[in-house]
Amino acid sequence: MIKGSNVLRKMRGNKMILFSSIILVITVLVGTFANLIAPFSPYHQELENKLKPPLWRGAGTRIHFLGTDHLGRDVLSRIIYGVRVSLLIGILAVTISAIFGIFLGLIAGFYGGIFDDIIMRIADVQLAIPLILLAIAVIVVLGSNVNVLILVIGLTQWMAYARMVRGETLSLREKDFIMSAYAVGASDLRIILRYIFPNTLASLMVLITLNMALVIVLEAGLSFLGLGIQPPEPSLGTMLSESKNYISRAWWLSTFPGLTIMIIIMGINLFGDGLRDVLDPRLENY
């Protein structure tokens, strides 16, 4: 079992976590206060001022620090709002899949038998179907808006959580302290909530961070196929995909959103890795 204060001390000592925390805090602040930071509205068009390069490469008539896109919108402002949208999708989708996966994983691991079989076979089925195919199919039917996107991504990610929680539950179930809880007559629910779930938290934390990175990349991929966030709503993936036809003409359109995604993903991954070092859960198999 993990002692809280001990973990905190270890985290403070870990350079990876320190560095990535700074990135993540900045990202979250940018996303939260997008409307205060962004110099322009992300929808504000200046058609006459389109495809202007960043400030230091000569400029248009107004100050667009990172230049403008094909409709004369401010790239910096759109990135700032894009961070918000991407984070929102990441957080909500991961929340959905984590809740769903943890619930099913606990049931499968704790009760075993037929529950386990059914839940794990469903997970296997879904794991065997490339999720991007599944996602495309659903999005094409339901249309593409933020809610559908979050739901689709959320429902294609739960398997990792279920498998992990199930595995941990299986091994915990046999432990002495669970046995003694039974002996004093604790209910199933109490045992799950009080003894089992808290002990999966360490692994969950790591899985959640790594999954978050995956989800943001997935959103970008779906946007590339035209199935992500709809214009004019800015998301980093949509911006990157819109920019693909301007790569040789307006490099700043793809470079800055691309770098932003890279920095965020790197921050999340570093954080996850650091957590893994500190918490030391056994994750290789999930």
């Binding site: 929808y43 068009q45 058609l47 409709l71 249309g143 593409s144 035209g226 709809q230 214009p231 004019p232």
Partner: peptide, 19 residues
């Protein structure tokens, strides 16, 4: 997107649905 911008300017608050 540009048309939506123009309609917005006269009060028709328009969203784009690209499918």
């Amino acid at each position: 997107e540009a048309i939506a911008g123009m309609l917005n300017a006269v009060g028709i608050k328009t969203k784009v649905e690209a499918v």
